[in-house]
Design a protein around this nucleic acid. Structure first.
Lengths: 206, 206
DNA sequence: ATTTCTAAGTTAAATTTATCACAAAACAAT
DNA sequence: ATTGTTTTGTGATAAATTTAACTTAGAAAT
């Protein structure tokens, strides 16, 4: 990935730390340590300390980390101390499930608009969102200054949608279509693909 | 990960190669090369050759790889030259979307049974599957010798479900709940978590 | 037949990533 | 006050991963 100094593989772990901190907080804990976090995440305490050391000093020797404080610091580092508006493109079964997902808001995200190209779907209300015509995608995303989008269209249409999104100013794309997207530098893409994960695991079976 | 010799990070890339090969095949191509695959995947040709070299020789110097042959070889390596029966636990919006997903079968997987704990859901038919009582989970999974499961329950219940699955003989778990599962060695777990991916990307924004 | 071009497989080098081990600090208990 | 315990942050070291470079082989063109 781009932005130098901190390796992307380190950045990729920060959201996991945040997730674990939030779980701990929900359980009523106030403090934790690299050892504790490491055990919960299945990684070494040293790695957690090393990762955090890229960004500053957040703990106290002898006592560890304040969950509240480290949470705040990580949220700031990851820029989720604000709420990002998101667009979702493709309201099939999966898009429907995502629109109904209640877990985004606390984590720095909210769905702002929802698109599809199917005339039978356009105008329908799903979880309080009116499905908009994909023809209005660029105008609407520009107007709302949306920087984050989720793609849940079929693989055949994903690249075309991607180009429209980038054209409209989207910088980060979470792609559920089973295809690698071609994007210019400066655009972030992450993939969600259960088949890939399943095949990864079956390697170890039998 | 466990199984020695081949690094897990290499194994993790094989399903991506397979995905790209299938896309190429659908486009009517017969042959490809490490350079071509690398460009499509955004990784170096050398890495693809190095990765494949862990498992044998699949190409021809000067001409590259037969898509059909390399596909077959990768399917064999990943053990998806058969179809794995899967269980799905938790039929909320997400579980519903997954049960209706048509893309598993060609890739080595099929859903065999579907569980929930909600009395209002048990007995309902979703995409041709009768939702079964989670109380019958262990017996049914043992009976069907199911080795692969997907967890789409709430985070609070994911660990408990995991233990039941492992007890019933499941070896590979695809977990959609936002929590790290504790499992004994020899059990594979992969995670699908859009929040983690989104937060990874927002690090690079603004 | 020879030359040219392409591309796999592989060894070596470079780079990246993870681990180790330790000094310094905080705190509790005596 | 001193001792013992815990745990951070970090520089040094080790391990891993990736890249680069090279040898070999196949195919096409002259």
């Amino acid at each position: 990935m781009e932005k130098n100094q901190v390796p992307d593989i380190v950045v990729a772990r920060l959201p996991l730390y945040l997730q674990t901190l939030k779980t701990l907080e929900n359980e009523g804990a106030y403090n934790t340590s690299s050892k504790d976090l490491g055990q919960k995440l299945g990684i070494s305490a040293a790695q957690i300390r090393k990762d955090l050391s890229h960004f500053g000093e957040f703990g106290k020797q002898g006592t560890g980390y304040s969950i509240k404080y480290l949470t705040e610091c990580l949220e700031e580092i990851l820029h989720v101390n604000k709420t990002w508006d998101m667009a979702l493109i493709g309201v099939g079964f999966l898009g429907h499930a995502i629109v109904n997902f209640q877990g985004f808001y606390n984590q720095g995200f909210r769905i702002k608009c929802v698109f599809d190209s199917d005339p039978n779907k356009i105008g329908q209300i799903v979880a309080g969102f009116e499905i908009m015509d994909i023809k209005n995608l660029e105008a609407t995303i520009k107007e709302n200054r949306i920087k984050v989008a989720m793609i849940t269209v079929h693989a055949e249409n994903a690249q075309e949608v991607t180009e429209k999104l980038i054209n409209a100013g989207v910088k980060s794309i979470l792609n559920y279509a089973p295809i690698v997207l071609k994007v210019p530098t400066g655009i972030q893409v992450q993939y969600i693909n259960p088949i890939i994960e399943l095949q990864h695991m079956t390697y170890y079976l039998e």
